[in-house]
Nucleic acid binder design. Structure first.
Length: 660
DNA sequence: AACAAGTTGTTTTTT
DNA sequence: ACAACTTGTT
């Protein structure tokens, strides 16, 4: 098992047990599942409808492999999202116990991190490279942008976040940068040359300083496997059977990586659902799954069409939603649970009424015995839950929010991490810049001077010290120097180092933020996380690849995980299921988002998103939309429910209007 | 050069 | 509503 999944799953150390389990595959699996589970050799494609026991199939297949004598450490399970990886590995753990602790797995990115640190030197990658998350990458881009004076143009030059989007789209969609700009950002085509230069500068900068962003992790892994036969064959020998989950969400690079990993044996199974492809914005395309048989002409294909999750009334509606897609999908789901309540379409007078309806219904359901954690509120974009969050707090309902802004990306957390990073790597100019700008009297220019000096000298504490003497009343810089002296004086575990940084940093908070008490709580949370680590570099890698799931929120920390209502973006809800599901903001213009109105492909993806959201529900499905919402951008009032219900027979769902 | 105040622009979704 | 960018003041 790789380092990252150990962080995800804290379980006892593996013992050397062969197989104490007795699994009756024929009883516990249906015919299609059984066929997929027992097809251990050669390429296999599984088309798995929503709720059709996909994870179950993967887990039983792992069991089957181990039974057949293949050691767990020779199995590799890959997925795109962290949540799917966790789900898969923990369910395998439940069935098989500690044996499968040795199964390797995780996201493509975390797998790449492990492999590149171990084998990356073959393509001149420093094993102690630093991972840049998105804001880090943007900081570098901004730095290079300013250094080239690209900000001061008569014609507006794209901002850092746009540049980052452009670069990333080019990599993930495997489209030349030029084409991305010309088709998706035609208004910036006058800057095409500068943009291309900047990308080159960005790549050189990262290369020179051993920095890898998320895209580099994939690209470099592909390069390693592509160019280094030895490593490729070595890994292919280690991982004798490969399984890829959520295959419809992989992009070309990931598909290529999977292909190369099984180069010597072709024991690969991919599982996916073309109707649930919702990551095209980062290069995934559901056609990838259709191309699998082209890549592996001898692939066997299995379809899982029996749904074990939802009642027939819910499936009737979700089938209608997906059948109206312009692309025809490959299957039709059915279930044996014929009875159930029909889904409900709820009209609310405004956003707050929508929130109050959800609260009220959640309370009623809890009265009926449905546990809070078995209900979820799903939404298109993360800010759609703001009003609801306030309302939930008012009602004293505990919740946990998934997706959207991660607390790891908030300013104060990034500030603190910058201090840890320069400890790990004093040549990290971006982190230096961030932490120096916090100091009163230090602006861009002074910061740059100090960094230049630091990069020249080996003894960077000395540099800081001499700088602190030149700065009038530079008491904060003095404090910084003393802090670093303390930190370097004796070796310490990350938590201790963090605690010393806090004693320096937290006094700076009140003058920077109005809401500093809340931010201090976030920092306490961060401290709790560092306590799990003994080594700084492990902590810093993990924090970039496996950041805590919870977004920033005011949740009472005392309430147990098991008693919380789930709020989640639909993207983060993939692969999960709940007794009752509330889809809020199902308002045409919000969901589907008006930005997709003029793009048929995006509109189709919005439809699949709605499909994913609705198929999360086991027993109860509520689709809610507020009316009379004025939209500034459109300049009009939105009041129609999502268009994905248009034309669907009214008999398939109930319509409610909220009355006081 | 740094900082403060005022202006403009832009909205997903994840690693 | 908020963040990035610009302009003006010390």
């Amino acid at each position: 098992m790789n380092d990252h999944s150990q962080y995800v799953l804290k379980r006892p150390a593996p013992e050397s047990i062969p197989h104490p389990f007795k699994i009756e595959y024929e009883k516990e699996l249906n015919a299609a599942q059984l066929a997929a589970v027992t097809a251990l050799e050669g390429p296999v494609l599984v088309i798995a409808g929503a709720g059709s026991g996909k994870t179950r199939t993967l887990v039983y297949r792992v069991a089957r492999y181990i039974e057949s004598g293949l050691p767990a450490q020779n199995l590799l399970l890959l997925t795109f999202t962290r949540k799917a990886a966790q789900e898969m590995l923990s369910r395998a753990g439940l069935l098989l116990g500690t044996v499968c602790d040795r199964v390797a797995g995780g996201t493509f990115h975390s797998f790449s991190n492990t492999i590149l640190r171990r084998y990356g030197s073959a393509i001149r990658i420093d094993p102690s490279f630093t991972i840049l998350d998105r804001p880090d990458g943007e900081d570098v881009i901004q730095h290079l942008r300013n250094a080239r004076g690209l900000g001061e143009r008569e014609k507006r030059f794209p901002r850092k976040s746009t540049l980052s989007d452009i670069f990333s789209a080019s990599v993930n969609k495997a489209i030349p940068l030029e084409e991305v700009v010309l088709t998706d950002y035609p208004h910036f085509s006058i800057h095409l040359e500068e943009i291309m230069d900047l990308e080159k500068a960005y790549n050189d900068y990262k290369r020179q300083r051993s920095l890898l962003d998320y895209d580099d992790l994939l690209v470099q892994l592909q390069e390693l496997l592509e160019d280094h036969r030895e490593t490729r064959e070595h890994l292919s020998e280690i991982y004798r059977a490969i399984m890829v989950d959520e295959y419809q969400d992989t992009n070309k690079i990931q598909a290529r990586v999977a292909r190369l990993l099984c180069a010597t044996h072709e024991n690969i199974m991919v599982v996916g659902d073309d109707a649930q492809s919702i990551y095209s914005f980062r290069g995934a395309h559901f056609k990838n799954i259709m191309d699998f048989p082209k890549e592996f002409p001898n692939a066997r294909i299995f379809k899982l069409e029996e749904n074990y999750r939802s009642t027939q009334p819910i499936l009737n509606l979700t089938n209608e939603i997906i059948n109206r897609a312009t692309e025809k999908y490959t299957k039709h789901l059915f279930t044996r649970q014929k009875q159930g309540n029909p889904p409900v379409l709820v009209q609310a007078e405004n956003e707050n009424w929508q929130s109050r309806f959800v609260c009220q219904r959640v309370l009623e359901l809890r009265e009926e015995g449905v546990p809070l954690q078995d209900m979820a509120v799903l939404f298109r974009s993360s800010h759609h839950s703001f009003d609801l969050e306030i309302e939930l707090v008012k009602h004293g309902l505990p919740f946990i929010k998934r997706g959207g802004f991660k607390f790891i990306e908030t300013t104060h957390v990034k500030d603190v991490l910058a201090h840890l990073r320069v400890l790990q790597n004093p040549r990290d100019a971006v982190s230096w810049n961030r932490l120096l700008l916090l100091i009163e009297g230090v602006g861009p220019k002074k910061s740059q001077n100090i960094i230049t000096a630091i990069l020249k000298e080996t003894d960077w504490v000395k540099v800081l010290k001499s700088q602190s003497e030149t700065l009038a009343g530079g008491s904060v810089l003095h404090e910084l120097v003393r802090m670093f002296e303390d930190l370097l004086a004796s070796p310490a575990i990350p938590a201790e180092q963090l605690s010393r940084i806090y004693s320096y940093y937290t006094p700076l908070l009140p003058q920077r933020f109005d809401d500093y008490p809340k931010r201090i709580r976030d920092l306490e949370h961060l401290y709790a996380i560092t306590e799990r680590y003994l080594k700084l570099d492990e902590f810093l890698s993990d924090i970039a690849l496996e950041p805590p799931n919870e977004a920033v929120s005011d949740v009472e920390p005392t309430v147990k995980e098991t008693e919380k209502l789930i709020l989640s973006t639909i993207h983060s809800a993939k692969g999960l299921e709940w007794h009752s599901v509330f889809i809020v903001w199902a308002l045409d213009g919000k969901f589907p988002s008006m930005y997709s109105f003029d793009n048929p492909e995006e509109m189709e993806e919005e439809r699949r998103l709605m499909y994913v959201a609705a198929t999360r529900a086991k027993k109860g499905l509520y689709i809610i939309y507020p009316v009379n919402i004025f939209d500034k951008v459109l300049g009009s009032v939105l009041s129609h429910p999502t268009r994905f219900l248009d034309g669907i027979p009214r008999s398939l769902y109930n319509s409610w209007s909220i009355v006081e």
